[in-house]
Design a protein around this nucleic acid. Structure first.
Lengths: 180, 180
DNA sequence: CTAAAGTTTCAGGAGTTTTTGAAATCTCAA
DNA sequence: TTGAGATTTCAAAAACTCCTGAAACTTTAG
């Protein structure tokens, strides 16, 4: 029953939490993760799982799962309150680093897998022996174009992740139709 | 029954289509949209709705809905084949422009709405009159920090959309804890 | 104007994802 | 070692999203 102790979670905070939740959802995370992170981010003191659950109306199980995912991404850290037995949690505040980490561990992997899959598919296309060599050549060309794009994208991501400036112009000016 | 006319859609093409579909899904579109765009992108000639449906095993309804969304985003264009009654479709090939458009029309809007919601919430917080002014001040500060971030993000997006180079360092070096 | 071909819309169903609630597990104090 | 509090896990339920199939609508040829 220690849920009167924290007292002050204003309606406005819950609105922000949900707003951030939607943003996170849009970015491929689960909405409750964004809500929880925000609740913690706006709290001057670390909160326990029970408080989080009661504020956001989530079951203990859901809180536990979302928290461990947040911890895995480094978005939330465990924290101790001296005499207390249970765990408390606080938000990681350097959002830039968080974004960077997701770009590195998730998006970059994705782009690489994409390039690999393209390469494999290209190899699986039948050799240019068939009755329609022109059609095959066309498809090959397009596949190569896609692959070039994905490599550009990978470079772009790499630059972002390592904090360098990024120039999107090669991306935009890439020619559409490779040969005649 | 004109599905023997196009003849050559290789298994490898369907794999690529699905790969792209997953990428698109990850980016907030529906998987079938990515598959369809890819099928068209790899086809030297425009395809009709019926062919698309039979290649990808989708019902006419699903094809129609996905196509109209693709057309809305400018990813696919209608195309006429002289004597034919039905519509044919071909893929927009300048992927850079497509990305740019989505960034401008979707992500940028999202970020703006996010900033608005933050502003509203900030205004809804009770005035600093309460028993815990320190707590309120803390929350206000964090909200302002979030807002500053979203403005940085908006600037970054704007730069990307207008094809300018982008420097992510201010994003990374933003201080976490605003005041003492 | 009528009929056939093509397309769009939409309610219902199928499939997927998320949440719950309860049992199992863990942790620490006594 | 035992037991109470806290957390994690997981099968089943709820919620949600997407697709199907059929009906309505549009368009064009005759």
């Amino acid at each position: 029953m220690a849920d009167s102790a924290d007292s002050s979670v204003f309606p406005a905070e819950l609105e922000v939490a949900d707003t951030v939740g939607r943003l996170m959802e849009f970015w491929g995370f689960k909405r409750p993760m964004g809500r929880m992170w925000t609740l913690l981010y706006l709290s001057p003191v670390p909160l326990g799982a029970a408080e989080i659950g009661s504020e956001l109306k989530m079951s203990a199980g859901a809180v536990s799962m979302a928290l461990s995912e947040l911890v895995k991404w480094g978005a939330v850290k465990k924290s101790w309150r001296p005499g207390e037995r249970r765990d408390f949690y606080e938000a990681e505040t350097s959002i830039g680093k968080l974004v960077q980490r997701v770009l590195r561990e998730r998006e970059l992997t994705l782009v690489r897998e994409f390039a690999d899959a393209l390469g494999r598919a290209e190899a699986e296309l039948p050799p240019g022996q068939g009755a329609e060599p022109a059609e095959l050549a066309f498809k090959r060309e397009r596949l190569q174009h896609l692959r070039a794009l994905s490599q550009l994208g990978e470079g772009l991501l790499r630059a972002l992740v390592s904090g360098q400036a990024v120039d999107p112009t090669p991306f935009l000016s890439m020619r559409d139709n490779a040969s005649s």
